[in-house]
């Protein structure tokens, strides 16, 4: 079960959410509008098992998420899920990778300190001897134009889900 976020770990003014995560129940989130820029030249890499539990993460993942490696290994990947992201975006991800396909998309991720960072994520199934044994995700720096387009799309999807986009719009 994911730990709730605590006010003493969060920097700046925050919004509060109770987020429902698949197989994890509700998690209390504290979310700020502080963006941490994606560093040039780096890739964030992680692997999960077939249930989405993190089994490997690189140093860039640790640095950008704000969690320690010990906190990340064994945690569900949804520890990064930002409440501004529409549920439909992640449904698309799981539909694709469970069908053995590659998924990519623009994702707003939540840090431990309540701030966020945008990534361009690619997820592929790890196939060994014909069997999917897990997933590898590689995140890279997105362009500002692509982020703006993603925000416009996600605003529409949030409305379809009966919610509003409450984060910054650029």
């Amino acid at each position: 079960m994911l730990e709730p976020m605590h006010a003493n770990q969060v920097v700046g003014k925050y919004r509060q959410y109770d987020q429902h995560l698949y197989k994890q129940g509700f998690r209390h989130l504290l979310v700020t509008d502080i963006e941490v820029p994606y560093p040039d030249g780096k890739l964030i890499v992680s692997r999960t098992d077939t249930q989405g539990i993190i089994t490997h993460c690189n140093q860039s993942f640790v640095d950008m998420s704000g969690y320690t490696e010990a906190e990340l290994i064994g945690a569900p990947h949804s520890i990064l899920r930002h409440p501004d992201m529409p549920t439909l975006a992640f449904k698309g991800l799981w539909d694709e990778v469970e069908a053995g396909k590659i998924w990519h998309g623009y994702v707003k991720n939540l840090r431990k300190d309540g701030a966020f960072y945008w990534v361009y994520a690619t997820v592929i199934p790890n196939v060994r001897e014909g069997v999917v044994v897990g997933y590898t995700s590689v995140r890279r720096k997105p362009s500002r134009a692509k982020i703006a387009a993603a925000i416009a799309l996600y605003q529409t999807l949030k409305l379809k889900e009966g919610n509003h986009w409450e984060g910054p719009t650029q």
């Binding site: 990519h104 690619t122 790890n126 590689v138």
Partner: peptide
């Protein structure tokens, strides 16, 4: 090596 190939595949996609 399989892991690195998976990584390269994500980058080529």
């Amino acid at each position: 090596t399989e892991f690195m190939i998976d990584m390269i595949d994500t980058l080529k996609a």
